[in-house]
Design a protein around this nucleic acid. Structure first.
Lengths: 208, 208
DNA sequence: TATAAAACAATATGATCATATTGTTTTGTC
DNA sequence: GACAAAACAATATGATCATATTGTTTTATA
């Protein structure tokens, strides 16, 4: 039962671990640009290798299967997204229309990006890939929870129903995702911005 | 300038054309089930051939390339969707909450179906496939226009702004699409229904 | 500094992909 | 019923895919 050497396992952040983490980040970034530019079904391991500028062996060492890579990329993207919301919240003027300002800013800086394009590819691919779906579901739930924690108090206090507040946040998130799928395809960016504005109006009840 | 034989081109709907149309429909239906079950990147021509129970040669005769097949499948799905809305509108009680009833029904019978799953795959694939995107964009625009025509007069007459009405319809459509991507993945159907209900509440202003 | 494991690299493999090719049957028109 | 075109069918081809295999270098610990 005694394990005296385990104390060494706690914090030896040697060169190897740093390099390893940097390599994993680099590969995930390559996967992101591949996924967003070419889509899931054309983002091959070979393409990721070329985009990241690493060898196939290196990628395989860190991510033995494609599902491993995609899962890691999803976690990479979702944790970055949470950090974005945490940082963005600090810069928001909480007095007037904090919620609207945050939604509009997240549309610009979160949804209409390469990163979210890659995430969309992963999410849609996971719909028809049970293995992948099971692997990213917990991460996805945590992401949703963490973001809702950040956004919750930006809406005017609603004593009616906590569920309604959560529904509003879900509608916004899903609406912007669908906007990318439907109208992003047609490329009418002005129209999309107007729709986002209209949603902010409805959600904050500015139209009475 | 005289073209006496052209009169024959107007309506010779012989056996061949009927068979051809039936075959195309059959292949598209096979493509739909493949796309929704396996996703775009795993829905190969071979899989479609097996699902539709036709030969590879037959498929190739009607759809020489995969893009041809996918484009035809998109048109097949979108025209069926428009017909659904036209039919559904006839059965709606126009007096009380016609809009909400229609949205809820379309969620059940349009969005949470194999057909919409297939369409979602095509739409997302088109985001990263310029050729496909250009081919289905016109059809997609017509679909949106036709559906908005059907839904427009179900909302309480809004004299404020015609754009706002269009925005509400867009938000609903995009929200339900995003709901499938985000929450459909997690499989919480009750939650999704609640979100749709919450949206109906917001859109029709029942929460004041 | 010896040694084992981690990290990276290059090439090989078998499966699957979209599509080309070639052949056969069915249909419409004269 | 001859004949051309449309419709369908079977097999072939080259590319690309994910991953297996094998070899080399770097790092950490003893």
């Amino acid at each position: 039962m005694s394990a005296p050497s385990q104390v060494h396992n706690i914090a030896p952040p040697g060169k190897q671990q740093e390099k390893s983490a940097a390599m994993r980040r680099r590969i995930c970034e390559g996967a992101v640009s591949c996924l967003s530019a070419r889509g899931y079904h054309r983002a091959s391991i070979k393409q990721v290798v070329d985009a990241a500028g690493v060898s196939l062996g290196a990628l395989q060492h860190h991510f033995p299967t494609k599902d491993d890579l995609v899962e890691a990329t999803a976690e990479f993207l979702l944790s970055r997204s949470v950090r974005w919301f945490q940082r963005a919240k600090l810069n928001i003027n909480k007095d007037k229309d904090a919620f609207g300002a945050m939604i509009r800013r997240s549309w610009r800086e979160q949804f209409t990006t390469e990163e979210y394009g890659a995430l969309l590819e992963i999410l849609v691919a996971a719909r028809t890939n049970e293995t992948l779906r099971k692997r990213i579901s917990p991460t996805l739930k945590n992401w949703r929870r963490d973001i809702e924690i950040e956004l919750r108090d930006l809406l005017p206090a609603n004593d009616e129903n906590a569920d309604e507040l959560e529904a509003i946040l879900t509608i916004g998130r899903c609406m912007m995702t669908g906007l990318l799928v439907h109208d992003g395809l047609l490329g009418d960016e002005l129209r999309m911005r107007n729709v986002v504005d209209a949603w902010v109006g409805l959600a904050t009840g500015s139209s009475r």
